[in-house]
Design a binder for these strands. Structure first.
Length: 739
DNA sequence: AGCACGCCGACT
DNA sequence: GTCGGCGTGCTC
């Protein structure tokens, strides 16, 4: 006689297991009484783990004798609602990633570790009664004095949380601690997310903005699912469109989710939202403490924050009343996570909007090619805003041919002359070079020896200030060699330019102009970026030097000349997205210049002034360049005309990655039939990194279905390959770069 | 990912 | 004779 199979609870646990594990309900409860979305404590092997119930009241194929009971329930009501659970399940399926690890991506750290949902609150500080920045105790503590002054400025009558303090330049936390110890500020604990002041001024929309707003969300109730591309040049006022759309969503009783690139969530942007809307705004970004993050997340999940604004991972926040999703700078690569679960927040945002009947706005001056393609195929509505708001005129772009020219540390005479003129005229100049450090190569003048990273086989970057060599691909750092280890000749020579050298050279060349460098090296410290951006606006530094960092979202109204030192990196690269990225980069850099009355000028140094991409981009603009690149992609059978998945492998030994991928290809090939191409395996473009050898196998298909079918069937086979145990391997669905 | 089990080398 | 090396396999 067989006993009936018991009803069980399916629990996703934080382990690299493809499936959730089955458990019996805790004593005294029926399985069906434990709702999906509740966190539970379970025993797995010898360990105790926090898991998330993803299904309950179903039967199991596991032998009843092997089922263990759930140890305890951590939530009375589901922490994650059914729709977010649906999103988690979809992401696990689509990216072929263990569901427990997807859950871990979706929850804030504290909740992932089992912390309770009640007692969630945030810390805030108020100035102590009678506290005075001029008090003698602060005579020698200027920064503390500033912070106290700032706190009083925000309002002495109430306490201010980390959110409001984020706009204070630099790291305020140690200063606040010092003020607390002196009794000049008082700390208090308060419930999450007080409403923002709101009621700020509303701009009158121009006709293009009105058309976009009405086209995306006509006055009235929620219009339902639909994706809208808002292609608006820098300065055309996209943010104002977002604000009006959010207003309509809130009026219809719906929540709005705003996704921004990693570097785009500035205190200024938040302040703009706060002053416009008198509602709680949940901001989710990397600067939050654990408690603050839990607070913001829970307020959103309970539907109590009508507006949620955050970076990539905010796409997983439960939003019961979601009506509008804004993805700002939707082309930005930071929406794609490059480790663990390699998801694209924009793509998941569209999926969840469909599921919840929400409107999606994808905003950019330089839309991703796949987005443009969808718009041209009619799947997305397309709105244009081609004019800069106000009187600002668009910048002019010009190529500087640097072939056969003598360059002074990478700078042509023409560019130097232009810089000199602008400085003399009292203008601000921005020079862009996507390479930090002093020089990318250190070479022996005697024998040609180059200092290389022994773990990556790539040249190490010379950092002059630190007097050290650093590998930009791993964390390795060494002292500067005084002599060549091969031939003994002293003083190896730095070759090529980085931002640090540029800064030095410009300071020598224009001794009266202050030079400010903004790259990862000068902004590593918490709050340093905000400080430097502040300094840019002060006008103290007429000459700005920086990397990629400077091209993202920051507006420098008094910059009237932008120089691109080396556009050729993007033209030579083997990556299939290099042209798209270069076009976006040049247009975004150009967008930094001349927002005020003076038109900006952009000078681009290149050794390939006849390159069709540059010609098209400068003559006809981004949309034309995008068309040309799309034509290349179509001819090459690459996205968006094909779908990719990249299988990567790495190991300390040289042979293991290729061996695994060869075995993987052999296992997949019979199932790939003629619908999926298996390209490779080949060594990765960077064949060794941090001491590990790397290789990859590219899977390509004309449509998604056969590719995903192959992956679903094939990945369990790969798990079972003996070669799989000798490597670390991972799958990247829709890879953004093939590194 | 951990953690246990298992089967071969240098140690009190 | 055992302590422990990490290859292999499993977690409901």
């Amino acid at each position: 006689m067989t006993s009936p199979s018991p009803r069980i609870i399916r629990v996703a646990v934080p382990l690299p297991l493809r499936e959730a594990l089955d458990y019996l309900p805790p004593s005294g409860k029926a399985a069906s009484a434990v709702s999906p979305g509740v966190r539970v404590l379970v025993r797995v092997g010898q360990r105790r783990l926090v898991g998330l119930v993803v299904e309950s009241g179903v039967s199991s194929v596991i032998a009843p004798g092997r089922l263990r009971p759930v140890q305890s329930l951590l939530d009375e009501a589901p922490l994650v609602d059914a729709q977010t659970l649906g999103l988690i399940r979809f992401a696990a399926d689509y990216y072929h990633h263990p569901i427990g690890e997807v859950v871990m991506n979706a929850l804030p750290g504290l909740l992932r570790e089992g912390a309770p949902v009640d007692a969630a609150g945030e810390t805030a500080w108020r100035a102590a009664p009678g506290a005075d920045p001029a008090a003698p105790g602060l005579a020698r503590a200027m920064r503390q004095r500033e912070l106290l002054g700032y706190l009083l400025e925000l309002g002495a009558d109430r306490a201010h949380a980390a959110e409001a303090l984020a706009a204070f330049p630099g790291d305020w936390r140690p200063l606040m601690r010092a003020l607390e110890e002196k009794g000049l500020v008082v700390r208090e604990q308060r419930p999450c997310l007080a409403p923002s002041p709101g009621g700020g001024e509303r701009h009158v929309l121009n006709p293009a903005q009105v058309e976009a707003v009405d086209g995306i969300w006509p006055q009235g109730p929620a219009p339902g699912f639909g994706v809208h591309l808002l292609e608006g040049v820098t300065g055309s006022g996209k943010t104002e469109v977002y604000l009006s759309l959010i207003e309509r969503a809130l009026a219809a009783g719906r929540q709005a989710l705003v996704l921004v690139p990693e570097i785009g969530l500035t205190p200024q942007l938040l302040a703009r939202f706060r002053s416009r809307f008198a509602v709680p705004i949940a901001a989710l970004h990397s600067g939050l403490g654990d408690g603050e993050r839990r607070c913001a997340w829970l307020t959103a999940a309970r539907g109590a924050a009508p507006i949620v604004i955050g970076t990539r991972s905010a796409v997983f926040t439960p939003l019961p009343h979601l009506g509008l999703v804004v993805v700002d700078e939707e082309h930005d690569a930071s929406f794609k996570q490059q480790e663990n679960l390699r998801y694209h927040a924009r793509d998941l945002a569209i999926w969840r909007a469909r599921q919840q009947g929400a409107r999606v706005v994808l905003g950019s001056a330089t839309p991703a090619l796949e987005t443009l393609h969808h718009a041209r195929e009619g799947r997305y509505a397309h709105h244009h805003m081609l004019a800069r708001a106000g009187a600002a005129r668009p910048p002019t772009l010009r190529l500087l041919d640097v072939r056969h020219k003598r360059l002074d540390s990478g700078l042509s005479a023409q560019l130097l002359a232009a810089v000199g003129e602008r400085l003399a005229a009292g203008g601000q100049v921005l020079l862009f070079l996507n390479r930090r450090g002093f020089a990318p190569v250190l070479i022996c003048q005697g024998c040609g020896w180059v200092a290389r990273c022994p773990r990556c086989d790539t040249p190490m970057t010379y950092h002059a200030q630190a007097r050290r060599l650093r590998c930009h691909h791993c964390d390795r750092e060494t002292r500067l060699p005084e002599a060549c280890p091969e031939c003994g000749q002293v003083d190896p020579m730095p070759l090529g330019q980085g931002t640090e050298r540029l800064e030095t050279v410009l300071a020598a060349r224009f001794p009266d102009a202050g030079v400010l460098r903004i790259d990862r090296d000068t902004t590593r410290r918490r709050g340093a970026l905000a400080e430097r951006l502040e300094a840019v606006h002060s006008g103290e530094y007429p000459l700005l030097v920086g990397t990629q960092m400077l091209t993202k979202g920051h507006h420098f109204p008094s910059v009237t000349l932008v120089g691109v030192i080396d556009a050729d990196q993007g033209l030579y690269s083997v990556d299939y997205r290099a042209h798209e990225r270069l076009a976006q980069l040049l247009v975004q850099v150009a967008g930094r210049a001349g927002r005020a009355e003076q038109p900006g000028e952009v000078l681009i140094q290149t050794g390939q002034p006849e390159h069709p991409l540059l010609i098209t981009l400068l003559r006809d603009g981004y949309p034309a360049a995008a068309d040309a690149i799309l034509a290349e992609r179509r001819a090459a059978g690459m996205p968006p005309f094909a779908h990719l998945a990249l299988l990567r492998a790495e190991a300390p030994g040289e042979a293991a990655p290729m061996a695994f991928l060869a075995a993987a290809a052999a296992a997949l090939r019979p199932r790939a039939a003629r619908t999926v191409d298996l390209l490779g395996p080949v060594p990765a473009p960077m064949p060794r990194r941090a001491g590990r050898h790397r290789a990859q196998l590219l899977l390509r298909a004309r449509s998604r279905a056969p590719l995903h079918r192959l992956l679903s069937e094939g990945l369990p086979l790969l798990d079972a390959l003996p070669e799989a145990r000798r490597v670390r391997w991972s799958l990247d669905v829709d890879p953004v770069d093939l590194y």
